[in-house]
Write a protein that binds this DNA or RNA. Sequence first.
DNA 1: CGGACATTTGAACACTCTCAAGATTTGTGG
DNA 2: CCACAAATCTTGAGAGTGTTCAAATGTCCG
Lengths: 251, 251
Amino acid sequence: MTHSISPNDLMIRRLKSINTLSREEEQALADLPVQVASLESGRDIVRMGERPSHCCIVIAGFSCVYKLTSDGSRQIMAIHVPGDIPDIQSLHLGLMDFGLASLSPCTVGYIPHDAIRRVCERFPSLTVALWRETLVDAAIYRDWLLNLGQREAFSRVAHLLCELLVRLKAVGLGDDDSFNFPITQLDLADAFGITSVHMSRVYSALRADRLIDVSRTRISVIDWQKLQAVGDFDPSYLHLLSSDIPPRPSR
Amino acid sequence: MTHSISPNDLMIRRLKSINTLSREEEQALADLPVQVASLESGRDIVRMGERPSHCCIVIAGFSCVYKLTSDGSRQIMAIHVPGDIPDIQSLHLGLMDFGLASLSPCTVGYIPHDAIRRVCERFPSLTVALWRETLVDAAIYRDWLLNLGQREAFSRVAHLLCELLVRLKAVGLGDDDSFNFPITQLDLADAFGITSVHMSRVYSALRADRLIDVSRTRISVIDWQKLQAVGDFDPSYLHLLSSDIPPRPSR
DNA sequence: CGGACATTTGAACACTCTCAAGATTTGTGG
DNA sequence: CCACAAATCTTGAGAGTGTTCAAATGTCCG
């Protein structure tokens, strides 16, 4: 597998997908101290209301941003793939207004705020690079808002699967048109604002239409063109530098 | 009215609601060149796909961020109040992945990117201040996602009205518990992901429950406590420095 | 093998939509 | 200042999408 990549390299790879970095900047990032940890699925990484002193980088697995209503229902508002730094914002917005949790078994790395701040002072363009990361996060939120507000469940799911595949490919993961996705339908339902019962029905429909194949731990895209069409997906909001890497423009 | 405030002062007031600024920084902001313009309701300010060379500041009226699906339905994903700078992100994300439009007659100001970049170089902490602005924008997106995904229309509307009142107060607008809100139900419907027909019904219900009073151009909050409860509203996600200014904690 | 957890399926119900018509408000020109 | 046109808002009834509740089936792991 791709276990040979170091946390720092993964982060660099991710940053380079939307930023251009000089050799010195890359080196500085490579020198950042990262403390690695493993988590089971369904664990909180950072809780809402906390004031973290570290940023978190996803090294393997999937994590998510979520918030709860007062009556306990959960909305997942972002899903992270390896390389993502989900809480860069904590550098400048001390109070967490959301929770960060693992959606699958995860390997994460912790980088002290101090270390990041020092690197940003030395290389101001790294400040911009990190800022850009947070801006792309916001762009993805906007896209999810469109997804939740204006599309029915069937399209929402297709749309997110497109997004995930593109983002995984952007960091060199996701072979062919399939990717590991060991995530519960109950969790996914919370990302789409539907119930797990309906999630199951939507998955069935997507299978029945031969758009995707779903196993417990893996998603295979059968018809990428049609999945994009059904999901009304256009990757430009991801602001990838090489935004011409649609996974297999075939079919 | 409050027409005596200059665009720059308004922007400073907004920035100070979530940042601490030194006197020199304030002065630098006050010296920024702002080109003022007036717009009717329903006009595009910046179009999706453009690469603006200016940032826009709302001086009077309401503007919004929106995106369209391919079949033409529109999701409004943010509403701006005077003082907001809706497209700071264009400083570092050249391509607009959303549209910016007026929801009411508006006065807006344009500030060249160059001028902003120069000020940020002179005062690095202004970089952080603007970064924070974009992070709060993202926090508001997260909150809208929770609103759209997990609450029914009745609560969604209550929630947004709470948010708007708090944000207006944060820049010194909104007298008592009411504010000018000359926005069409059709536009509002697009913000809540519902139809205008249903929007009308929700407004009726809110009136019937004596939570708000609605006229064509104005919203009056009758029962602030109850509106917050119904909307499940907690302003902490706005990251206001003086987050202890609930408009009239009475009732 | 057993138990916890996850998925699937059915049926009745609820929230929201669509379509359509009528009422109200706003803006404009005479 | 009135009259009329255009836009907006309201209301009703039937249809959909998604929910709730409940039970059955499947899957993973100790």
